[in-house]
């Protein structure tokens, strides 16, 4: 349904029941133009997803090539009945909620600054984006070194104990992980919010000023409501990303001390244990969680991906 919309930007005013031969040929053209993209999508997304689902119903272990077979849902029951899965879900959701909340507040502040910058706009926007351009693994190593008791500078800062072993406890590890995530992805959030910000008509602010609204009132009564679509899309993208957090945790703790995310759990089953059945079950469950998050955002909060897109 959404597929044919762009191909037919000016629908005829009077839409008769019978489509003219011209619209029909346009439909056909639209399908043909979309076909390569659809095929590519099927090949690179649908096939691996389907294959993962098939693997998740089997007992497949690369180390035991001669064993295995169809086992039904037993891989799923093994995952869902394990404490580890639920601990990791908690960890993932905890990191996701806190990091996305902080990113939203900081991102909004940065977006406002970028919007208001009168001179050096290009320099401000570019410098804000730098952390987002750094590879996550590199950024994670940089922060790990900074917080390490042996090599880091953080423990030399005032108010922080020299002996503090950041990666020796669960919540102190979370703090560093969340900080590294926030540092890295706030620019992305800010950029999406900025796109929403520029679409607001400046006359609205002028009118509000004339009516005597304070800066705070203008922010809460004009900026926020009009930015709702952009905020929801930014939150949706970042939440989905944050749920799949892997690199930062893998570099910093490898999941020790109950800091493991569901993605690391999947990695352990698939890459370390080569247990493709169990690992695929974890992957499929992660996929379902991501699907659920997107569903809640789109249906529950009414996020409209097309409208909120930069420039949309």
């Amino acid at each position: 349904m959404t597929v044919n919309a762009p191909a037919n930007p000016n629908p005829p005013e009077a839409a008769p029941a019978k489509a003219s031969s011209r619209t029909r040929s346009e439909h056909k053209l639209a399908w043909m133009l979309c076909a390569p993209a659809v095929l590519a999508m099927l090949l690179v997304t649908a096939y691996p997803i389907a294959y993962a689902i098939i693997l998740s119903l089997q007992d497949v272990d690369l180390r035991f090539p001669d064993e295995g077979g169809f086992v039904g849902l037993s891989n799923y029951s093994a995952v869902l009945s394990s404490d580890l899965w639920w601990t990791d879900i908690f960890n993932t959701v905890f990191i996701m909620l806190i990091s996305v909340s902080i990113e939203l507040v900081l991102g909004m502040a940065i977006a406002l600054v970028m919007h208001r910058a009168i001179f050096g706009r290009g320099v401000v926007r570019t410098s804000v984006l730098i952390p987002y351009g750094i590879i996550t693994v590199v950024a994670a190593f940089a922060w790990q070194f900074a917080f390490s008791p042996e090599t880091g500078f953080v423990n030399n800062l005032p108010l922080i104990s020299d002996e503090m072993d950041w990666f020796g406890g669960r919540f102190s590890s979370f703090a560093v992980i969340i900080m590294a995530e926030v540092w890295k992805t706030t620019p992305f959030m800010a950029l999406l919010l900025l796109a929403g910000l520029v679409t607001i008509d400046s006359q609205l602010y002028e009118a509000a000023k004339v009516d005597g609204a304070s800066a705070w009132q203008r922010f809460t009564r004009i900026t926020l409501p009009l930015m709702k679509p952009a905020i929801l899309v930014a939150l949706l993208f970042r939440t989905l990303d944050a749920f799949r957090v892997f690199d930062t945790i893998f570099v910093m703790t490898r999941g020790a001390l109950d800091t493991e995310s569901v993605s690391i759990l999947g990695y352990n089953q698939l890459i370390s244990r080569l247990n493709l059945g169990l690992g695929s079950a974890v992957s499929v469950l992660i996929f379902l969680c991501v699907f659920l998050i997107a569903f809640v955002f789109v249906k529950g909060f009414g996020a409209k991906v097309e409208e909120g897109r930069p420039g949309g």
Binding site: P149, E150, E163, D165, F167, G168, T253, A256, L257
Partner: peptide
Amino acid sequence: PPSLSTSDEDSARLA
């Protein structure tokens, strides 16, 4: 040592 739970061969040697 304070960072026992994160110690490996190299950190042990360094300490």
